[in-house]
């Protein structure tokens, strides 16, 4: 459903992404792993057209979205949960979720989905009226994911959801990601925690200095000696 063909990105004078091609099939969890600075986040940002200086083709549901403005891309059903959460710090939890549904017009549907998000993250319901900036890191991550879901996306792009979270929380977040996927949302997951990412993904790409160096079924990759050595701490 999402297809990236021969993508190049130039970023602050640096050729950050050097010809990436990848595709995500409906209903899958696809994971993009690699070290810091390998270009994972740049890749996601380019899909959402937040980064301009790019060459190549990106299509979603057979529509060319390479140069569509970011807000149109969201309307088509691509929601991103950014690296570092990026919740709106001066808004309450409920307002943040409401912002997530910004492109939607069906009020009852929004209310229904808000209920679903609260069911998924009971902690957010408890803190409904708290300012997002005062939440803990884990709660902010939940809120960011919840906000992404509120757009009722066909595909959810997750950027480093485990960043800065305690191991227990990471596990919780990942089980929720799996749950979201089982409820019918396709997921493209960018992760540094390769172990976790490979454990829930169907398919994975390994990114190194702007190039895809390896791709395959997540299970196969997890067993790969090279991957183990470089990313799984051998």
């Amino acid at each position: 459903m999402l297809k990236v063909t021969d993508l190049h990105v130039y970023y602050g004078g640096i050729h950050a992404i050097k010809g990436i091609s990848l595709s995500v099939k409906e209903g899958q969890i696809v994971s993009l792993i690699g070290a810091n600075g390998a270009g994972k986040s740049t890749c996601l940002n380019t899909i959402c057209n937040l980064v301009n200086n790019s060459k190549g083709k990106i299509s979603f549901l057979d529509r060319d979205i390479t140069s569509a403005p970011p807000h149109k891309i969201v309307k088509l059903g691509v929601a991103q949960v950014p690296e570092g959460r990026k919740v709106f710090p001066q808004m309450t939890v409920a307002e943040n979720l409401d912002m997530g549904a910004y492109v939607r017009k069906d009020k009852s549907g929004v209310r229904h989905d808000m209920g679903k998000v609260y069911k998924l993250f009971p902690r957010l319901l408890e803190r409904k009226n708290q300012l997002a900036g005062t939440l803990s890191g884990g709660e902010q991550q939940m809120l960011a994911i919840g906000r992404g879901l509120m757009a009722k996306p066909r595909i959810l792009l997750l950027d480093e959801p485990s960043m800065g979270l305690a191991p227990l929380l990471v596990r919780e977040i990942f089980s929720i990601i799996r749950e979201i996927n089982s409820l019918g949302t396709t997921i493209l997951l960018v992760e540094q925690n390769a172990n976790m990412a490979l454990s829930i993904a169907n398919y994975a790409y390994v990114l190194e200095t702007g190039r895809i160096v390896l791709e395959g079924e997540a299970k196969v990759l997890a067993a790969d000696e090279k991957v183990k050595a470089a990313y799984l701490g051998g």
Binding site: P70, H71, Q90, Y102, A151
Partner: peptide, 17 residues
């Protein structure tokens, strides 16, 4: 308010900045 708090995030939820 969203744009003033975080322009990128506002774009990501579909705000026409």
């Amino acid at each position: 308010r969203a744009v003033s708090q975080d322009r990128d995030a506002a774009q990501m939820v579909g705000v026409n900045v």
